[in-house]
Design a protein around this nucleic acid. Structure first.
Lengths: 361, 361
DNA sequence: AGGCGTTGATTAAACGATTAATCAATCTTT
DNA sequence: AAAGATTGATTAATCGTTTAATCAACGCCT
């Protein structure tokens, strides 16, 4: 078979300089023994010929593909593209490419997706799991980005602290009756956000949780959440556990003639792209995706290149959740990244603060 | 160097069966000359040992990595994750992996991203360009997904037809004064949508275009679009060129006390995830991303595996736009995929239809 | 002068899979 | 029976890069 390479290989450079292939390789990699003068000549020739190393040759020899897998539950869900973007960037900075594996909301497909990555020979994987995700013995290091309460989680936003922050914000605004709006009680992320929320409030503040998935099972997809009724029942704040739910609450309230934030405050989580442009702009919690991705990729690359800290997942680890068995899970020194409150126009004073102002004047 | 492979290789299977490595390879690939009985034995042994072919070995010998690149302008922009998802799925069905390259809204970075993919030895690329994207001589087949008016476009939604459809919908609803809301006049996609829109209307219907980027340059990011004023000027329909802009229009009108769709109709494009859940649910145009991705991947794979139809891009091609020089652009038989109108609650009757009803009764 | 250490290169082999060419045995045709 | 064709396997080489081991030449120290 004639060479299928479009560009030059090492032997072409070696031939044109009258040196060995190994010398060219050593010169370009800065290893081995090559005089400084010859290094310069080799590098100049390589540049002039437009030499691009063969990843296949390199991978075969070194046992490393230079590629990481990214496993996502559903990239069309608005939260995950941010993760993909941050992870891809951090990986490229570290010299790795990202092979994407999306399971389109189907958990069973995540195992398939993981296996496909294994077959591709990825050096490691970043997995954003969903309830039920099972990580086969990937045979490579794995970083998990979910929430700190997930067993084997490598690094993630501190969803609990995020919940506390938004709750504190609403408490300080004077809200005493708050409806939390979430997707599903089976999600670790959502439960941690709620847990943190409630931990910041005392018994004088009443909270209730509305699970959208449950409601849609009864009333069909896209059904009204019944927020106008909740407002009439005295709820003055609607704390959604994601911006998507917040958007839904906002438009439903406004459509019902309930002015936001005058008569009802709406908050979200995740600071999605449209949060700043809707009217009123949305108050939300922001995740530092860049830092999360950097930490995850750094831990993964460390495990790949230096055999860094790895936690062997398996039965007997944490108990509360389905364990992720037989994995080579990487750990990071810093595994919780604080969320940041972004106050915009959708949050306004509640009755307790309005009353307080009246008493002071 | 000892083998770094976690699993067995062909020679392990060959040794355990007392046959040659070439026989094992032939049996597993269905090529060459191997008796049916021996094929079965080899396959059973491979399965029992958990054999996974080495992509590196295969790529080196065949000159093919089995990986395609996907170049996106900004995956965190709500439109592009759909594309990524559809492309990844179509590629995996065709047996290819997708290496993602995102330029985070920075056009200069797209060239870098493309070069990184070249270095990775991808077999081909799918590129979603932005104004100014330059495709270096990638040395591999390239499929472009933008809009039919983009030179070198492989396949895309028929944005013109989409514009016609939404315009017809609004015309039939009785709207005679329509504000179009777009991002930037430099986008081929947006201009085709507007072109189609206007082509469906005659002189009795007045349209105006509001460019958000221009407005934000003057008034800052996230500024109000001034839609309440437009409504007072008699505009009864707000036809946004994307769902993101439609969402912005919807919330701004609602906040200003202008009921949607009672007093103002709002439509979008792209049928993003939240279009069906906001109140009122959004009328929009839907792209058949699955079909687009299938066509693009099929054309690309055909070019890779069979040397199928390739259009050599370069100067002298189409003139209207910046040409994409030196590319190996693939073509597809069907390059326009119709968009589909999705009517939901955000669109309602306009004055001409209300008047017509009054005359009839 | 002889021995040892260092330098700068090359040789040889490895990694794993694929594939064209070759060969021995068997079958079919003349 | 001899020649030609077919079958089912193996041999040999390739792809491109990396890397351990080796070697010749030179410099330094005793």
């Amino acid at each position: 078979m004639a060479s299928t390479r479009a560009g030059p290989n090492l032997s072409r450079i070696a031939a044109s300089l009258g040196v060995s292939v190994a010398t060219v390789s050593n010169a370009l990699s800065g290893k081995g023994r090559v005089s400084a003068e010859l290094v310069e000549r080799i590098r100049a020739t390589a540049a002039a010929l437009g030499y691009v190393p063969s990843q296949a040759g390199r991978a075969l020899r070194t046992g490393r593909s230079g590629v990481l897998g990214l496993v996502l539950p559903d990239i069309s869900n608005p939260l995950f593209p941010q993760i993909a973007q941050a992870v891809e960037y951090a990986a490229s900075v570290a010299g790795y490419g990202i092979l994407i594996a999306d399971s389109r909301g189907d958990i069973g497909m995540q195992t398939e997706a993981i296996n496909r990555l294994v077959e591709r020979g990825v050096d490691g994987m970043v997995i954003v799991p969903r309830r039920g995700t099972r990580i086969a013995d990937a045979g490579c290091p794995v970083a998990v980005i979910d929430t700190p309460s997930t067993p084997g989680n490598t690094v993630s936003a501190d969803h609990w602290q995020g919940g506390r922050e938004i709750a504190t914000h609403l408490r300080d605004l004077g809200h005493r009756k708050i409806l939390l709006i979430g997707a599903s009680s089976t999600s670790n992320v959502q439960n941690d956000r709620i847990g943190g929320f409630k931990s910041a409030l005392d018994a004088t503040i009443k909270t209730e949780v509305l699970w959208i998935e449950k409601l849609e099972e009864q009333n069909g997809p896209g059904c009204l959440l019944g927020l106008a009724d909740k407002a009439r029942q005295g709820f003055t704040a609607f704390a959604a556990l994601s911006d998507l739910h917040a958007l839904r609450a906002l438009t439903e309230l406004q459509r019902a003639g309930i002015a936001v934030p005058d008569s009802a405050t709406v908050t979200g989580f995740d600071d999605l792209i449209w949060s700043a442009v809707v009217t009123p702009a949305l108050t939300t919690m922001r995740m530092d995706m860049e830092t999360i991705a950097e930490i995850a990729i750094a831990a993964l690359v460390n495990a790949i290149e230096n055999g860094g800290p790895i936690e062997k997942g398996g039965p007997g680890e944490a108990a509360a959740d389905e364990p992720l068995p037989g994995s080579r899970l990487v750990t990071a020194e810093k595994s919780r990244v604080p969320m940041q409150l972004v106050v915009r126009q959708s949050s306004g004073p509640g009755p307790a603060r309005t009353n307080l102002s009246a008493e002071n004047s």
